[in-house]
Write a protein that binds this DNA or RNA. Structure first.
Lengths: 215, 215, 215, 215
DNA sequence: GATGAATGAGCATTCATTCAT
DNA sequence: GATGAATGAATGCTCATTCAT
């Protein structure tokens, strides 16, 4: 079912390569949507490929299995987030500034990830595609933890259980992130405002707790 | 039709009844373990029954489907936790006391739930059986939120975004809970001590944030 | 689960024997109803036993399998019908009288068989329990064929293909029987009248066809 | 997404399409045979697929379920028969001619349907694949009934109970059809001759009954 | 490299039958 | 003899994956 254009093997940026990249991107995009809608476990490769113009066999030219594409997605996601975080980090930030930056990066990132979902008729924020229990995610956590340790140390505060602190911050980000997405999806609040709101809340919470955050 | 037996049905504690109860318990126990190891979605009825010495069909004498047993498990879990929380709650608690009580209840409860897992050769704290996205769980969250609102109001503090506050507290409990389980599983710390430690950290964190928690 | 009445082994017509007979009858009755409602294939032993006060295991004290009880039912049915037919047959009947008698016996018998079904809320005449393709049924057909042959011979008519004639008569009885049951079930006509009507139609049809039956 | 193939989809008669059609046909053929041998209820999808050299999953590429393939078979059958009957019907047929035509069409059709069965080592005419209790079949019966009513009316005969008459004719066709198939299968008589014989018998029977059919 | 039909292992579920009580 | 829970073979069906085209 394929015909007769074996002419251009030379340049690695011809139409073929473009098409390949486009197909890969299309599959990834479809997968992200499908995973968001159905959950990773319930989603099938067929569900994913049905969202594209491609045939089921084609999937396997790009990914070995559903697990692999899920891994790739998580990887992409993580790289994306890590870059965002890196871009926003600066030298000699205060603890407070670091927290605000990191929370902000996460919440903004979460919005980007759910762009497609927001466009659905009934945007359901079921099961965030982010997983918090993968090795890669753990690595990001470790990085955040190191960041936190270093800013805390710079401020002379060393007795903190940074593992718990990091875990707590991540927990806050996670649950607040969900709430924020729902607020956005239900239009109860503009996106930018929602991000700021969540960022401020998370930052204050982490820094001073609630006893002090709203006196 | 038929008339003359119906005599010997009196005592419901013969061997049959015992065996039935034991089988039901065995299946539930196996299910809890399997769900913990593989995750609810990935687990199959066969996985569950394979952990018992029963035959596959027997499962269906007790539960209609995987969904049903999962529901039963969640229900059990929630009832257990709700009771624990209720038992510990008292009239006129301060905000701080309420938080300490609730966190403590959750962490203690989490330990109980993972009793079996701790006994495994290599206790893997992969995917806690607790799910945070079921209707029942949402109901518990709403209850916690109401508790928080009422203790805050009692202390004259009303401007707080309690939805976010609740979410944050839950996030903290969730992630700290995982960390705590890992610490216990890796024997890096005694159970009671781990529970106290996590409870104190979570309470302080929520109340005063970290800036103040370790001066 | 059974107690202490091993006293009376002696007489083979004690309460035990009565109970046994009653149980057997109850199972057969339930089976007839269930087969009529669900069809023989779709019906399960559980469906049958559920209609009685007995336990599933008890079924196997009386019948080896579903096939066996079905066989017993067919047998009963056939014996019943054969007796009915025999009772009505007389010496030296004319061909016409024989036909009327046989058709009448069948239609009356069919009504008896469906007694229970008529009592249902919505009597559905789905799949008559009668089967026309069993060896026993074939035997009855052969008998009918012999009867027909002998009455025909008595009247000096020997060139008829009696196999086809018997088949035709059976076909008429079969389909007319269904129609008749439906007419009765839908109350569009009294039972006795329906039986007479069908008997007359079938007899005339077989004797003289329709060209002559209603001029 | 994706842009540049879509060229080579033109001819739908490549090897793929041929194979598809062949497989579908093979499955249908196998189903007809299996249904005939085991009966529709007792037959399983596995039984059907076992008669082909395909894999079990392949069945579901062509039919959603056993019910669906049975429906397809019945549909095919009915369309075929209806066409045959239509082709043979003519304007202004006499009652007698109509009956002869309809019976002839049915008996001829029945032979065609059982072509495969005749080829078996021991052709068993157990349970004809034709079902007389489906809605579609009922529709055909209604049509036959209307035909009969109109030809009868054309001949000025209106007092007949056409429901019973139709039922009787169908019963005759049904049982005679079985007999005929057995005669053919046991080679006791040539196919064409058997069809003619059955047709004549059925027609005479219906018209004039047996008193007159063999004087 | 794209295609999509074929594959078959695997799952949930049913149910006739057995057997300890 | 009655009971009803346990059994496990069998069924319908799904879906990741392969491979001829």
């Amino acid at each position: 079912m394929q015909s007769h254009q074996d002419l251009s093997h030379s340049e690695p940026s011809g139409k073929r390569e473009q098409a390949k990249a486009a197909n890969r991107a299309a599959i990834l995009k479809a997968a992200r949507l499908v995973f968001a809608e159905l959950g990773v476990e319930a989603a099938t490769v067929r569900d994913i490929i049905r969202q594209t113009d491609l045939a089921s066999g084609t999937f396997y030219n790009y990914f070995k299995s559903k697990e692999e594409i899920y891994g790739a997605l998580v990887q992409d996601t993580l790289i994306e987030f890590t870059r965002l975080l890196k871009d926003m980090k600066q030298e000699d930030m205060s603890y407070e500034d670091y927290l605000r930056t990191a929370f902000g990066a996460y919440f903004r990132f979460l919005c980007q990830q759910n762009e497609e979902v927001f466009c659905l008729d009934s945007p359901i924020i079921n099961k965030p595609v982010m997983r918090f229990d993968t090795p890669e995610m753990k690595a990001v956590f470790q990085e955040v933890r190191k960041d936190i340790e270093s800013v805390l140390q710079a401020e002379g505060r060393t007795k903190v259980d940074t593992e718990y602190l990091t875990a707590a911050a991540i927990g806050i980000a996670r649950e607040l992130g969900n709430c924020m997405l729902i607020r956005i999806a239900t239009k109860s609040c503009g996106r930018e405002h929602a991000i700021d709101e969540a960022t401020e809340f998370a930052t204050h919470m982490t820094l001073s707790g609630v006893r002090h955050s709203a006196t």
